[in-house]
Nucleic acid binder design. Structure first.
Lengths: 241, 241
DNA sequence: TCTCGATCGATACGACGTACACATCGGAGG
DNA sequence: CCTCCGATGTGTACGTCGTATCGATCGAGA
């Protein structure tokens, strides 16, 4: 008998395996269970706590068990990333591209702040839930007279801003958590020695004035939304949409 | 005699130690030498190749030697990050804020593409060379009638876009390097099975059209600069500068 | 010359990712 | 009902990592 149409599971991508019809009989483990457990660990204790051994413990299983479903730790991270992207729940209730971009941006920010480890994850691996994002955006941009390249540029521009902004926000949060600072004021007192040393060099006069005069240093949402409005304004103006 | 003004070196920050006048006598190791070696390894073989042991080998020294200058691997990464930020060489030759932001953006992109591992580094640790960036930007924004918060918002907005954009660019490059793809076409053939499976689900019709129609998919510089112009336009328009 | 603190080396420990061979389960074919 | 086989989970082991600890060694001030 010649070759079966059945393929070697190891040669299939993670996503093909994930959607295979028969979930297999024994199934104490599934990709979903693995993803949920890994995400739970990462949410609670950070990405460094996500260990193949720790994951196995959490699943009540031997350290090597998960390797039947995931080819290595990198694929585990892919699985986690795709799983969380499912939380974005993109809806089709708006035809206005700008409003759609705005809610996508704020929702992305919310999801990432909820799963701060996401920011350390590789971008642009092709996973089903990640692909749904550009699909949604491109579809709202359709019919405005933009060519394909420009439509994608709009998507990339807004996405890039969101990612960068959330990244710095998370970076700050992470430092505060590590050092046990609960408020912006606590952080500033904690940072005071280092900061006053830097300021004492006299190399940062303008920054020093910013420190004295600014009043919204601890309002990341204001900062995020002002930047987002700038970006959306610029896209609309330059591309005439 | 009561307490000396000399402090316990372990309690000083990395940067205070770095600029202490006497570099110590024996000095086969210095923070600079350490930073250079670590950066060289990361540039050549990626951040994962930067190992305390590997670094020591490269410096011709015992594995634990560098710990005299760096409190742990995290501080080594800080040191590397600050070192590379020194390459930005911010100049004061422009008073026009927009031109200054533009050259900062393109230069940042260039430096990061030269040191792709930078993108995986924690943002916003207070290091001298990193602080020089907002200082430069704020000083060009000075005197345009913006309050301190808004000036900083401009800086953050542009910086966020740049970081996000470069991050996705580097992410793609990294995947291509890992899989040994040299051109965009090679990458597309390599990705073809996965992509055609995803497209076969019928869930991404607009994205599919983009794939057919787009002609600048492999022109990251065009994408970067278009987005940057949008962001700068938006900042200028919304803030009236 | 002696001493003392700053450097650097040697050794060791626990945790990590994962290769590999083995045990075990559950359903299909007789 | 039995048997067998592939899919699933286990046990063990190896090499590498970050780094704690302590001892050796060097240079300069007394």
């Amino acid at each position: 008998m010649p070759s079966q149409e059945k393929q070697d599971p190891a040669k299939l991508t993670l996503w093909e395996r994930l959607e295979r019809p028969a979930p297999a009989p024994r199934a104490t483990l599934t990709p979903q269970r693995i993803a949920e457990a890994a995400v739970a660990i990462a949410d609670a204790e950070g990405l460094d706590a996500v260990t193949m051994r720790r994951l196995a413990t959490e699943l009540g299983v031997a350290p090597m068990a998960a390797y039947r479903y995931v080819n290595g730790k990198d694929e585990l991270l892919e699985l986690m990333t795709d799983f969380v992207h499912g939380e974005l729940s993109l809806s089709d209730d708006t035809a206005d591209w700008r409003e759609a971009m705005r809610t996508l941006a704020t929702r992305t920010r919310a999801v990432m702040l909820k799963h701060p480890w996401m920011i350390r994850t590789v971008v642009l691996v092709l996973t089903p839930n990640q692909m749904a994002v550009p699909e949604r955006v491109l579809s709202t941009l359709d019919g405005l007279g933009l060519d394909a390249d420009t439509m994608m540029a709009v998507f990339r521009t807004v996405t890039s801003y969101v990612r960068g902004a959330v990244e710095s926000e998370i970076g700050l949060e992470q430092i505060m958590r590590e050092r046990g600072w609960a408020s912006g004021d606590e952080a500033r007192t904690g940072l005071a020695p280092q900061m006053s040393w830097l300021m004492g060099t006299g190399r940062y006069p303008t920054y020093r004035r910013y420190l004295r005069e600014a009043t919204r240093k601890d309002d990341p949402q204001w900062q995020f939304e002002l930047g987002l409005d700038c970006v959306l304004d610029g896209v609309a103006a330059r591309l005439g949409i």
